[in-house]
Simulated scan of single mutants.
Amino acid sequence: MLIYLIRHGQTDWNAEGRLQGQKDIGLNALGRRQASENGIRLAEELGESAVDFDFVASPLGRTRETMERVRAAMGLDPDAYRTDPRLIELSFGDWEGSTIPELQRIMPERVEARARQKWDFIPPGKDAESYEILSWRVGAWLTSVERPTVCVSHGGIVRSVFRIVGGWSGDKACDMDVPQDRILKIDRDNGLIGWL
Results as ranks from 00 to 15, higher is better:
Met74Val: 04
Ala50Lys: 08
Ala72Ile: 07
Ala73Phe: 08
Thr66Ile: 04
Phe55Asp: 07
Val51Ala: 13
Asp54Ala: 14
Thr66Phe: 04
Arg71Ala: 01
Ala50Thr: 01
Glu68His: 10
Arg62Ser: 07
Met67Phe: 13
Thr66Cys: 03
Val56Ile: 15
Val51Tyr: 05
Val56Gly: 06
Thr66Trp: 05
Met67Ala: 12
Gly61Leu: 13
Pro59Cys: 03
Pro59Met: 03
Arg71Phe: 04
Arg71Asn: 05
Met74Ile: 06
Arg69Leu: 15
Phe55Arg: 02
Ala57Leu: 09
Leu76Cys: 00
Ala73Glu: 08
Ala73Thr: 06
Asp77Tyr: 05
Gly61Asn: 12
Asp52Tyr: 10
Pro78Thr: 01
Arg71Glu: 01
Pro78His: 01
Ser49Tyr: 00
Pro78Ser: 02
Thr63Arg: 00
Ser58Met: 13
Val70Ser: 07
Val70Gln: 07
Met67Cys: 12
Ala72Gly: 11
Phe53Gly: 00
Ala72Arg: 14
Glu68Lys: 12
Ala57Cys: 11
Gly61Phe: 07
Ala50Val: 08
Pro59His: 03
Gly75Ala: 11
Leu60Asp: 09
Pro59Glu: 02
Arg62Cys: 05
Ala73Asn: 07
Glu65Thr: 15
Ser58His: 12
Ala50His: 09
Thr63Asp: 11
Val70Tyr: 03
Arg62Val: 02
Val56Trp: 05
Arg69Ser: 09
Glu68Gln: 15
Thr63Asn: 09
Asp52Ala: 14
Ser58Asn: 12
Asp54His: 12
Pro78Met: 01
Gly61Ser: 15
Ala57Tyr: 08
Val70Phe: 07
Leu76Asp: 00
Val56Arg: 03
Pro59Arg: 02
Thr63Phe: 02
Ser49Cys: 00
Pro78Gly: 01
Leu60Ser: 13
Ala73Trp: 07
Phe55Tyr: 15
Leu76His: 00
Gly61Ile: 14
Leu76Glu: 00
Val51His: 09
Asp77Val: 02
Val56Lys: 04
Leu60Asn: 07
Leu76Ala: 00
Ala72Tyr: 08
Leu60Tyr: 11
Arg62Tyr: 06
Leu60Lys: 09
Ala50Arg: 09
Val70Ala: 08
Val51Trp: 04
Met74Lys: 01
Arg62Phe: 05
Ala73Ile: 06
Arg71Trp: 03
Gly75His: 11
Arg62Asn: 09
Arg69Val: 05
Ala72Lys: 15
Val51Asp: 10
Arg71Ile: 02
Ala73Met: 06
Pro78Trp: 01
Glu65Asn: 14
Ala50Ile: 04
Pro78Glu: 01
Leu76Tyr: 00
Pro78Ala: 01
Met74Phe: 10
Ser49Leu: 04
Asp54Lys: 10
Arg69Trp: 02
Ser49Asn: 06
